[in-house]
Design a protein around this nucleic acid. Sequence first.
DNA 1: ACCGTTACGTTAACACCGTTTACCGTGAAT
DNA 2: ATTCACGGTAAACGGTGTTAACGTAACGGT
Lengths: 262, 262
Amino acid sequence: MPASAPHSGPGAAPEPTRREKQREATYAEIVETSLVLLRENEDLSLRAVAQRMGMTAPALYRYVGSYSELVDLVALRIDQAATVRFAAAADEAAPDDPAARLVLAVTEFRTWAMGSPREFSLVFAHPVAEPGCRPGEPLTAAASAELFTVLLHDVWRATGFAVPAVEDLPDAVRTAVLDPAIPGPQHLLPEHERGFGWVSMQGWAQLYGVVALEVFGHVDARLLASGELFLSTIARFAPDLGLAEDAPRLVALARERIAASS
Amino acid sequence: MPASAPHSGPGAAPEPTRREKQREATYAEIVETSLVLLRENEDLSLRAVAQRMGMTAPALYRYVGSYSELVDLVALRIDQAATVRFAAAADEAAPDDPAARLVLAVTEFRTWAMGSPREFSLVFAHPVAEPGCRPGEPLTAAASAELFTVLLHDVWRATGFAVPAVEDLPDAVRTAVLDPAIPGPQHLLPEHERGFGWVSMQGWAQLYGVVALEVFGHVDARLLASGELFLSTIARFAPDLGLAEDAPRLVALARERIAASS
DNA sequence: ACCGTTACGTTAACACCGTTTACCGTGAAT
DNA sequence: ATTCACGGTAAACGGTGTTAACGTAACGGT
């Protein structure tokens, strides 16, 4: 370990050397080139990425250990990029309207997924959990999940919807809720309010479920295009979030956004 | 076209000649060999299938037009085989207990999916809908979907749960419901009762969603193993099926089955 | 019973893939 | 100025889907 740079006190910034910056740059270029390939509907391969960068395939092995490692990296990057898109959608609503913010974000999630099915598959339909992955480990590609959790949390603060008591939860749920796998505001909650995490997971299951169903097309094509299945999912979940009164407005908001993006 | 066989009246059975039977046999052997490969966690490739059959890869092109066509065929076969498994699970309940039959079948669906993630992915996380697929076309690999529709229909006949009026449905939903993409008992319903199809689709979305989420592991691993997310989905949907009173019993039934299979 | 046609299988080859090996120039560090 | 790790290359191995050319055996009609 080169303690290299002078004038760097212990714990100071890593002081990236020229080599390191160069390396970091090509690292980023590799991932970015992969994104371009996906966007242009060509298949992602080491040779294709290398060729677009003016390199040869074996050179990439100086940066990634294997093809699947590249895929993991790309999936992480996609998740990040998509998340800023979701966040931007949320920001189209007023800051004091957390329900609208949540609805806009999840609607953007659906729009993005249906417009970028390859990317969606890479991030959300991948064998993310190896059997050897020990339980309780934080999930990868969780930036979007964290965003949705935060937005849901804001709704909770606004409506104060009912949340199950921690002691009433089944054992497995309680231990999972007390030690969340997704980073976010749950960690700051007092233990007796951690039931919120359970509602959050159920909501995520609803959202992921209907979007995956639509993306993979296991539903009537006409229904799919209209987005009514997605809208009905929102409408059905709204009451659990203390938004029974707001449901028509929120569904209209989502419907409008879907219509605008098609 | 050889009108070949003698004594074959018009419209009679195709009277399969020896060649045709032989062809059909190898056709089936190809698919069956593919299933074995999947079951043994080896990757499905034309060469691997051919080798196991004592043939060479190009010979398979006499039967399938391409690799992806083989995959489609295998997916169809998997769906069929899995469906008989789900039906067998349903038959473990009394014939006059349609709610239990439905719950056992969907629980078996989850168990199967988590035990055979490769097969599940092949059938349910595949680009089933090409952009050129015109709307209203019957879905492939719909045997399981049809089974669940039938079971749900039996529940409806028993409990008579509320179903939306056809004229109240959004346009896209109404046209889809009046001309269902999934074969099943909906076709026999009078038009004013076709709202059942909408409930059926919503239920399918719930089931598919939570199972896909669990299979692809985008949820806390401990939660996943316990199956509580799946159970809560059942509990949440039961009231919509007129099974509010029955919910605890049905959830207990599902929980018991999950515990037995792990 | 013969013959032509058709179906079914082979081998060889092409283009692509991930991955490993051996080699080598350049640039940073001592 | 020398050393040496880093970042690149070309060549090669085994694998994939796919096509072309070629043989052979079985069927159908006369």
